[in-house]
């Protein structure tokens, strides 16, 4: 924690800890009042995690902690010791995109792309829990992730398409999804 000492000089007191992020151990030192969001972005430079309010009100900052989607803006970095954190940077395996990343790209489900990381991770957790969710289940699961660009439709379609592909189907997007209705 940073403090102004008696002589006006700044004393530095940082928490020094080991975190597991995207399957790797990282050692990092940061002020203990920093949120996980700040630690990821500022200390680990994993800027794929976004922020839109820092108050739990938008869902941009969602990451997975032990596989569950949570709001990194309301979690303390120091409380993450012993937990596995996954960010959007950890979704692809090597050069292989996660099927969700693939379908989001295909369907233009990432317009500005700012809500995308949080939504991808939330959807990933959903598909691990419910492999073939209904439209309503997807809406429920993503109800905490605001998007101002897409109206969510392409996002919902992309999650469905990824689910089908992950189940081994050779699924293609519906014609209406791409071209609109006749």
């Amino acid at each position: 924690m940073k403090k102004v000492g008696k002589n006006g000089k700044r004393k530095l007191e940082k928490a020094h800890l080991r975190l597991r992020v995207n399957g790797e151990e990282v050692e990092v030192a940061f002020a203990p009042h920093k949120t996980l969001l700040e630690v990821l972005r500022e200390d680990l430079r994993l800027t794929g995690t976004k922020h839109g309010c820092e108050l739990g009100e938008c869902g941009c900052c969602a990451v997975l902690v032990d596989g569950r989607p949570v709001l990194s803006c309301l979690a303390l970095g120091v409380a993450m010791e012993g937990h596995e954190v996954t960010t959007v940077e950890g979704m692809a395996v090597g050069t292989e995109l996660h099927p969700l990343q693939q379908t989001f790209a295909e369907l233009g489900a990432a317009q500005c792309g700012y809500c995308t990381p949080g939504i991808l991770l939330t959807a990933k957790a959903l598909l691990e829990h419910i492999p073939r969710p209904s439209r309503d289940e997807i809406k429920e699961a993503l109800a905490g992730n605001l998007c101002r660009c897409t109206g969510y439709i392409k996002i919902l379609e992309a999650v469905e398409l990824a689910a089908a592909r992950m189940a081994g189907e050779k699924a293609e997007p519906a014609k209406e999804t791409i071209y609109g209705w006749e």
Partner: peptide
């Protein structure tokens, strides 16, 4: 699109 989906795009 892909840069947006892997968190690479820099805002």
């Amino acid at each position: 699109a892909k840069a947006k989906c892997i968190g690479e795009l820099k805002f």
